[in-house]
């Protein structure tokens, strides 16, 4: 009720109006004084609100339903019924206890059972060097220097990842490909770990490797194909959590990050908070979940 009155009040200064016309003079004056008081209180309100929290909210998980891995997979397989098993995937969401403006966890790892292996990798190194032979042996699709630069400049980008051998970095920077590759996230740089001294292992890590990074306190990653058996999923999740813990440990001592919640989801399914167990007391046998979907 107070809002319309305070809005009508300034109209009274400009004289007659359709809405304010039939009103008497007395309430207008009262409303004017009321308005000034309201403004004062409003200002103090906004000052109080400005103090936000510096951490992400972490809800108590005591009341949350938690599932064992087999149970969650049982449900997810029911939700993904009839879908193409190669297009739907299991996803992992890890909720961290962390401050908002700290450093983020970010790394690349190789799962024991890779999710996607058909990415095309481009390696920038002299075409007749030892590194080029290594790269080809490890499964890179494009190897070279100037030919690749020319191709990219023409707009032909036929690869999903790009690695640069450390001795070719100068040439790459001179070629000025940052404009084209940068927006695609393909430009090699030491920060992202795509400028390497040993090409072979780097390429091997990338085929079947997956990247993860923290965004607003949550790390998301594809963790498995829908056709995986519970044992394979267990291996993958274990490997992922181990590398994640190692990564968190490597951050400087001042920042503290903890794993708060681990959620297993899928392309079409809901998210299941994992309890950390493999099988619950009432779960079906893992054998039943290992057949084709």
């Amino acid at each position: 009720m107070a809002q319309p009155r305070s809005l009508i009040a300034p109209l009274s200064r400009f004289g007659a109006s359709v809405v304010t016309g039939p009103k008497s003079d007395l309430p207008r004056f009262t409303s004017l004084s009321y308005q000034t008081i309201r403004c004062a209180t409003n200002k103090s309100d906004t000052k109080k609100k400005k103090k936000g929290r510096s951490t992400f909210i972490c809800h108590d998980l005591k009341r949350a339903d938690q599932f064992s891995l087999v149970d969650a997979m049982h449900y997810i397989r029911a939700f993904e019924v009839g879908r193409n098993p190669s297009s739907s995937k299991y996803e992992m969401h890890v909720h961290l206890k962390t401050i908002k403006n700290g450093p983020v966890v970010r790394n690349r790892m190789r799962l024991p059972h890779p999710v996607k292996t058909d990415i095309r990798i481009c390696v920038i190194c002299p075409a007749d060097s030892k590194a080029a032979i290594e790269a080809r042996a490890a499964g890179a699709t494009l190897v070279g220097e100037d030919e690749i630069f020319n191709q990219v400049k023409e707009g032909i980008v036929e690869f999903d990842r790009c690695i640069c051998y450390i001795e070719s970095l100068q040439k790459l920077n001179k070629a000025g490909l940052g404009r084209i590759l940068g927006p695609k996230g393909l430009m090699p740089s030491t920060k992202t770990g795509t400028v390497v001294t040993q090409v072979g292992p780097a390429v091997r890590n990338m085929t079947g490797g997956s990247e993860y990074r923290e965004k607003v306190g949550v790390i998301r990653m594809a963790i498995g194909q829908l056709g995986f058996t519970p044992e394979e999923m267990q291996n993958n999740i274990k490997a992922f959590m181990d590398t994640l813990k190692k990564d968190i440990g490597q951050l400087s001592d001042r920042v503290s990050k903890d794993i708060h919640e681990v959620v297993l989801s899928s392309t079409n399914g809901p998210g299941f908070t994992l309890s950390g167990e493999f099988r619950g007391p009432n779960s079906v046998s893992p054998k039943e979940l290992s057949g084709p979907l």
Partner: peptide, 13 residues
């Protein structure tokens, strides 16, 4: 493990 490359219908015999 089943082939990791997402071929069409790898999981169905």
């Amino acid at each position: 493990p089943p082939s990791a490359t997402p071929n069409a219908r790898t999981t169905l015999t």
